[in-house]
Simulated scan of single mutants.
Amino acid sequence: MDITNSSGYRDFMWAVNLHRLAFEMVGLWPKHYKCIKKNLWAEIWVAIVIISLIFISNIPMICTIIQVWGNMLLVIDNLHTTLPQIMVSVKYVIIRRKRKVLLSIVNMMAEDWMAFKLNRERNVMIKRAQTGRLIMMIGYIIIITGFFTVNFLSLLDIHVLYVTNYTDRRRLLPLETYHFYNSYKSPQFELTFFIQILTTLFAAVIYMSVDIFLVVIVLHICGQLENFRCRLIDLVLYKDFNKILNDIVTFHLRLIRYEFLL
Rank of each mutant, 00 (worst) to 15 (best):
M1R: 11
M1Q: 07
T4W: 06
S6V: 02
S7T: 05
Y9Q: 07
R10M: 12
W14V: 07
A15Y: 09
V16P: 00
N17Y: 12
L18D: 06
A22H: 11
M25L: 15
L28N: 09
Y33E: 15
Y33G: 01
C35Q: 14
N39C: 04
L40K: 13
L40C: 05
E43W: 06
I48Y: 14
F55N: 08
F55P: 02
N58V: 15
I59A: 04
I62A: 15
C63N: 11
T64P: 01
I65Y: 00
Q67M: 12
M72T: 13
L73C: 03
L73F: 06
L73Q: 14
V75D: 08
V75C: 08
H80N: 04
L83Y: 08
I86C: 02
I86M: 09
K91D: 08
V93T: 06
I94M: 09
R96V: 03
K98A: 03
R99W: 07
K100G: 00
K100F: 06
M108V: 02
W113Y: 14
L118A: 12
N119G: 09
R122K: 13
I126T: 07
A129M: 03
Q130F: 10
I135D: 01
I135K: 08
M136K: 04
M136W: 01
I142Y: 11
I142T: 14
I142C: 13
I142V: 15
I143T: 03
T145Y: 14
F147T: 03
T149G: 02
N151P: 05
F152W: 05
L155W: 04
L156D: 03
D157S: 14
I158W: 15
H159A: 10
L161K: 10
Y162D: 15
D168G: 00
Y184G: 00
Y184N: 12
Y184A: 05
K185S: 05
K185Q: 07
S186Y: 10
S186A: 10
S186I: 05
Q188D: 10
F189Q: 07
E190W: 08
Q196A: 07
T199P: 02
T200Y: 10
T200I: 10
A204D: 10
V205W: 03
M208S: 12
D211M: 05
F213C: 09
L214Q: 12
L214F: 12
V215E: 11
V216Y: 09
V218T: 04
H220N: 04
H220P: 02
I221K: 01
C222E: 03
E226G: 01
D234G: 00
D234I: 00
L235S: 01
V236Y: 04
L237D: 05
Y238V: 09
K239W: 11
D240I: 01
K243V: 06
I244G: 03
N246D: 08
D247C: 02
V249D: 07
V249C: 06
H252A: 11
R257L: 13
Y258L: 08
L262S: 05
